[in-house]
Design a protein around this nucleic acid. Structure first.
Length: 790
DNA sequence: GGCACTTCAATTTTT
DNA sequence: TTGAAGTGCC
């Protein structure tokens, strides 16, 4: 059932390479592919690495390959695993496969991001990992809030050791596929004087308790599942006849291991990527994965796509020359049969304002000539560069849009609304509850939350459940108690409604009754209207899903901002954000030492950092189809201070015959282009001696740490001490309460309550005690808040 | 709990 | 310079 020729469409004859074309008649979908592309499509079996340079038809190869697998009956759509990094890429692939093979693509259940596919697998086998199949997926925000709690619980000063930082460490461990037990002790110790490992483990424990996973866990738990349950892995080997991976150069170690485990079965894995476009090393991507492919998958076929269909000659030559400077690369040379086109221009400006002015002027001129603004992009190294450009655009009335920035589901109002819905769906979602318990303001501040937490910890209930118990007691002041009771009752009501009501309607009801909508309606700030609009949009999109849980999954894994407006505007974005896009005209401002290559990348990652910056430059250059314009400014304001800067070494690395210096900076008169201090650079090693590099080397030699002189002496001696004392007292009571189903207190017993002081138990009703306090009088309290007193 | 004030740091970003 | 996040005061 595996036959190559299924139709008799004539073989396409790509110009100039006819000699190769003598294979069997090709299927229609193969027409128009060049020989390398076609080879990449037809090399179906065994490991394949497709090195697809920028603009060489990478997505086309991927989608055609899938169509080919299906059309030749090698696999059903449901037997093909195709992984991408972003949802956008997954969506585009689905769409394009749809064009190729028709409705069959609907049945490609295993086309998605690493994370969404992992989530899918995990939900099926959750019980094997000590999770329930309805586990929640936490995003970064939840993650950090949870981490804060863990850090506090360990009695560590959160200011000295920020949760964000630990979160970063844990993320990078997870990126490398390391569970708490796998982290090298020395490495785990860098955080909080040796507590890093403990905290990581504690964090994982908390997640388990909450029946939650973070993004990294999706991959990590899958690895555990595959490794510890050979039978489960075998079913996936059976299922996935073919594996395809997009943007392989961006995979991190965990993803690599994930792929390797799955590919072990049939060994039909095709990875498509471009080592020259690996720009995410800083978030765990390992260029090494792609560089090592042939070693990892022996007998691999490697196919290079070097024929570029995007850029004109000068542009392509410029990009090729620059990237050739990198040492860690597999090596490709992009070619084009297109005309040379316009030379790449380099313009020096006195300062960043002049730079913005020059760019704006050019854009205006192009606009007058009738160019489509949607085909123009300004790509910057760091977001901070955007401001001056935007200011100038606003001044001159050039329409623009900023691409990137906070995503729809990251916005506070969306996250708040979702937290409400999460609480309705699962009353044990403490993080969600905590997020909205006092939003809008209900007078339920830290003190109240603390009480809820104490009870929750003591009883093992969730916060919402604890709240339900606590409002029946006198633990809270009347005001807070009433307020909390209302909230608890509202959640009870909403949960009931959830069973019958369409989720969109329910969401509207929840947002209305909780006062959340009102909160923004009353808000006088400028963006309130936008936020209400976003909420409406959220409610609208809710109805596109079968149920609320499906929606929540979608939002945590899949949703991204779809700026669907197609008006003609110039795009401004970071170089990272531009990967995968192309424009007729590309402006690249800020090519200065320190900014680009970025000093920090150099300091932190040395040579590897420089090479990644160079790849980033290469990505920028290859975004342009027809016109490419680089800029540098001699003066730029950095953190508010004016600093003078030198043109980027990357400028000196461009081929003179393909670039044109339009205008030297006023103060850049020592010879202009071709005479800078970088001219002498023969090879990387000899010239790499910037101050930052030297500093980095010195630090490394000293052994890294810059010696925190910590001598935990008298700081906060008294206020802190009180809090300390309270901890153990409570735990005593907690244990008692936990161990027995009913209260451990008898009528008449003497007890001590943190807030009300000593008293005698008057009566007992389950976990509720009526106590006559010596000073505070008769109160109803929960047993978890008192301890026995002598 | 909300405000005005100080302090501190400061790439790139997806899931 | 800006912005977030924390502090202190009412």
């Amino acid at each position: 059932m595996s036959d190559h020729s299924i139709t008799s469409a004539p073989l396409p004859r790509p110009g100039g390479l006819a000699a190769r074309a003598q294979a069997a008649p090709a299927a229609g979908y193969l027409s128009g592919l060049n020989p390398e592309q076609r080879q990449a499509v037809e090399a179906t079996d065994g490991p394949v690495l497709v090195l697809a340079g920028a603009g060489t038809g990478k997505t086309r190869v991927l989608t055609t390959r899938i169509a080919h697998l299906i059309a030749t009956n090698r696999a059903f759509p449901s037997q093909i695993l195709s992984v991408t990094f972003t949802n956008k890429a997954a969506r585009e692939m689905k769409e394009r496969i749809g064009h190729l093979v028709g409705a069959v693509a609907e049945g490609m259940p295993w086309l998605g991001t690493f994370h969404s596919i992992s989530a899918r697998i995990l939900r099926r086998h959750a019980e094997l990992l000590d999770l329930r199949s309805d586990f929640t997926i936490l995003d970064t925000d939840d993650q950090i809030r949870l981490m804060k709690q863990v850090i506090q619980a360990e009695g560590i000063d959160e200011k000295r050791w920020p949760a964000r930082m630990l979160s970063g460490f844990i993320d990078s461990w997870k990126n490398r596929g390391l569970a708490p037990k796998d982290v090298a002790p020395g490495e785990a110790a860098v955080f909080a004087n040796g507590k890093g490992g403990t905290l990581y483990a504690a964090y994982q424990d908390r997640l388990k308790t909450l029946n939650a996973v973070d993004f990294g866990d999706l991959l990590l738990h899958c690895l555990t599942l595959f490794r510890e349950h050979a039978d489960v892995l075998a079913t996936y080997h059976e299922r996935f006849r073919y594996i395809l991976v997009d943007e392989y150069q961006d995979t991190n170690t965990a993803q690599y291991l994930w792929l390797r485990l799955l590919a072990q079965g049939r060994r039909n894995i095709a990875c498509v990527g471009d080592d020259d476009q690996s720009i995410y090393g800083w978030r765990g991507a390992e260029v090494d994965n792609i560089l090592r492919f042939e070693h990892d998958f022996p007998g691999a076929t490697v196919i290079r796509l070097e024929r570029n269909y995007r850029s004109t000659g000068h542009i392509l030559a410029t990009a090729a020359k620059l990237i050739a400077r990198n040492e860690s690369r597999l090596g490709k040379t992009l070619r084009t049969e297109d005309e040379l086109g316009e030379k790449v221009t380099i313009t020096g400006a006195w300062d960043s304002q002049e730079e913005a002015r020059l760019i704006t002027d050019e854009i205006e001129a192009m606009q007058l000539k009738g160019e489509n603004l949607a085909e123009i992009a300004v790509l910057v190294r760091i977001s901070a560069q955007m401001r001056e450009l935007e200011e100038r655009f606003v001044q001159t009335g050039v329409p623009y849009r900023v691409i990137g920035g906070p995503r729809f589901y990251e916005r506070a109002e969306i996250r708040d609304a979702m937290a409400y819905l999460r609480c309705v769906v699962s009353p044990t979602d403490d993080l969600a509850f905590e997020r909205i318990v006092n939003v809008p303001k209900r007078g339920l501040g830290d003190a109240t939350i603390q009480i809820l937490h104490n009870h929750a910890r003591a009883t093992g209930f969730s916060l919402l459940q604890s709240a339900r118990a606590i409002v029946e007691s006198d633990e809270l002041k009347p005001k807070a108690r009433t307020s909390l009771r209302e909230l608890v009752e509202a959640f009870g009501r909403w949960s009931q409604r959830a069973e019958h009501m369409p989720q969109g309607e329910l969401a509207e009801l929840v947002l209305e009754e909780s006062g959340y909508t009102e909160m923004w309606q009353k808000d006088r700030s400028a963006d309130a209207a936008g936020r209400l609009e976003n909420l409406k949009e959220l409610v609208r999109s809710l109805d596109e899903f079968p149920d609320l849980p499906a929606f929540l999954e979608h939002v945590s894994l899949v949703m991204d901002a779809d700026s669907g407006d197609s008006a003609e505007r110039v795009s401004i974005m970071t170089l990272h954000g531009a990967k995968g896009l192309e424009f007729d005209t590309v402006f690249l401002p800020g090519w200065e030492e320190g900014l680009f290559p970025n000093q920090r990348a150099l300091d932190e990652s040395g040579r590897a950092g420089l090479e990644e910056e160079r790849r980033l430059a290469h990505v920028g250059l290859t975004r342009a189809r027809k016109r490419l314009k680089l800029y540098f400014a001699s003066n730029r304001r950095i953190h508010g201070l004016w600093q003078s800067s030198l043109p980027s070494r990357f400028i000196d690395e461009l081929p003179e015959e393909h670039v044109e210096v339009v205008q030297a900076a006023t103060n850049y008169s020592q010879g202009g282009y071709g005479a800078s201090r970088f001219d002498r650079m023969e090879s990387f090693g000899s010239s790499y001696n910037t101050p930052g590099w030297q500093r980095a080397q010195e630090n490394k030699a000293r052994g890294g740490g810059s010696g925190f002189s910590e001598n935990g002496s008298g700081f906060g001696g008294n206020g802190f001490g009180n809090g300390r004392q309270r901890g153990p007292l409570l735990i005593e009571g907690e244990l008692t309460a936990k161990s027995s189903g009913t209260s451990a207190f008898d009528t008449g017993a003497r007890v001590f309550h943190v807030k009300f002081g000593p008293g005698s138990v008057a009566s007992v009703d389950g976990n509720k005690l009526t106590v006559d306090f010596d000073k505070a009088g008769r109160k109803m309290v929960l047993d978890s808040f008192v301890q026995k007193a002598g």
